[in-house]
Design a protein around this nucleic acid. Sequence first.
DNA 1: TTTTACGAATTGTGATATCATTTTGTAAAT
DNA 2: ATTTACAAAATGATATCACAATTCGTAAAA
Lengths: 231, 231
Amino acid sequence: MTNNGELNIPDIPALSGTTTQEYVYERLRNAIMLGAIEPGTSLTMRGLAECLGLSPTPVREAVRRLSSEHAIQIKDNRRMTVPLMTLDRFEELVALRVAIEVHTAQRALPYMSDVIIEKLTEMDDRMDGFVSERDLDQLTLLNQDFHRTLYTVNPAQASMPIIESIWLQLGPFQRQVLTRVTEYYEIDRHKEILAALTTRDATALQDAITNDIRDGVLKSGRSLLADIEAA
Amino acid sequence: MTNNGELNIPDIPALSGTTTQEYVYERLRNAIMLGAIEPGTSLTMRGLAECLGLSPTPVREAVRRLSSEHAIQIKDNRRMTVPLMTLDRFEELVALRVAIEVHTAQRALPYMSDVIIEKLTEMDDRMDGFVSERDLDQLTLLNQDFHRTLYTVNPAQASMPIIESIWLQLGPFQRQVLTRVTEYYEIDRHKEILAALTTRDATALQDAITNDIRDGVLKSGRSLLADIEAA
DNA sequence: TTTTACGAATTGTGATATCATTTTGTAAAT
DNA sequence: ATTTACAAAATGATATCACAATTCGTAAAA
């Protein structure tokens, strides 16, 4: 076996009435997103299957879906890894996130209601709590929930799956950045987003979303990657 | 068995050195994109497997990848279909296409070279031929090649897979539209794109890409869907 | 003619078996 | 010490098997 011995995939509540394949997919996805699988670590189908106590069949299906989303890279030497980030790729992904999320927020704006704004405000308050507790997992998940709630007010929206896939590609690296950043101090751009939503101001919303994404970990990410790639 | 008897999945050249699963994926993808599988038709895993002369295992993996990309809808009654288009969804997908492709084109512009422009011009000329021959399959494929070639000049670009997935979601319906449109007359927006590339004019490029996508089948698509949903 | 009931056939899912290929561990040779 | 050689172990891929759940066809009942 490979180094799967050290592998620890956080468990998640077994969603009832669904398939094993779906469960594996969700669990691996969660693990990748939260950085529980260090990028670069060698994985094998059978290793994962054994680690999860399952046969290789559902594992392979889940892994292939994840590799279709570029969350897992299947190499030619019968190994798979969560891909390591590069500076160029990082810049592209962040720019893409801005483009798509701004577009999606604009399209959600006409469907915005006071009830939803209230709900978003509530989420933002809860996030403040996690920031002070330095609970990165809960912070990440709730931040995603905030954005997801905003975008899916538009019932016909088709971009949410795409946005999720970009989050998944950025997730592991963001986590690497966050754990290296001692001073985690986020200017709260969510307040700006909420203000723009309240006044139904499309331009202000565009700026707020852009700032929120860029502020996140762009600068720290850049400097970390510059260091890595200089070596 | 279901109505798989009438099912005809166009064959594609067997890509050597690859897996059966990958071959099935490419073949189904091609069939969906070109409208060979009528949206709404009931499909089963085993039916497809038998139709392709394979065991269900690689078929299931390919189908699941396609369903992750929303190209196939897995229903709860043990059937799958290529999803039918709705007006709302159509509007969303086209708007999303514009947003992402404009963004990607902008990011490709700095990498543009005369050699590539020459290659794109050549492709556009070949497309003119297919237009007059009314060869929809070749036209669709070459049009995609044109856009793909443009966007992938940026070597670090991360949006191509996303764009491909949107094409795949629009493909079946676009085909339905095209076959119903007797007068297929496309104002050649590619020439505008080429002009904008030559002068390295970002704003003109934005407009040209937008027009190209909107002109495609947006109006015909809208009216067809309005008719369908009125019934 | 329409509805209901029920057994046979079909289906999706996941575990297992098999096979060719690749990797890995070890020892001999340089 | 480093490289080379090679057998043993492990891996990915696909077909097949087993099973529970669902669908479908047919016939009885209304």
